[in-house]
């Protein structure tokens, strides 16, 4: 369906500005600024440090031997995550194939049929079309 893109080309330019975003979205705009992200990361690091220190202050109730080791969860969390990601990257080297590998018998290589979608650009109003006519539901 090409008419979508042709109809919306002007709408796209109009809405690509920050002031058009909803208030909720504006609250997250910091994610685009490197500086703010650094601040968040710093905050996270401080939080981690605090949590680690708390382990020495608060006695955790434990069931499993070793669980009571100070910072047990911190270490496990960090190492497990790192190891999972690193070994997954290795796994990818073995099992990654072209997207066409299983096609045409798998959905990987195909586009989602437009009939099941309603592509809209930001700021564009949904067209009041009779969806029964455009969507061939095998019904009616």
């Amino acid at each position: 369906m090409t008419e979508h893109t042709s109809n919306n080309s002007d709408a796209k330019h109009a809405t690509n500005k920050e002031q058009d975003y909803t208030p909720l979205a504006k609250r997250f705009l910091w994610a685009d600024s490197k500086h703010s992200v650094e601040k968040v990361i710093l905050g996270l690091s401080i939080l981690c440090g605090l949590l680690f220190l708390l382990d020495f202050i608060i006695h955790r109730h434990t069931y499993v031997p070793g669980e009571g080791f100070p910072g047990f969860y911190a270490i496990v969390g960090f190492l497990a995550f790192t190891l999972i990601v690193l070994s997954a990257s290795q796994l990818r080297k073995i099992i990654l194939r072209n997207e066409q590998y299983y096609s045409p018998h798998a959905v990987d290589a195909e586009h989602y049929p437009e009939a099941g979608l309603e592509r809209l650009e930001h700021g564009e109003k949904a067209k009041a079309v009779d969806r029964d006519a455009t969507k061939t539901g095998g019904s009616e």
Binding site: M1, P113, A115, T136, G137, G138
Partner: peptide
């Protein structure tokens, strides 16, 4: 019978 034709864009 149920789905095939609807695969083409304009049935």
């Amino acid at each position: 019978m149920l789905f095939r034709k609807s695969r083409t864009e304009t049935p």
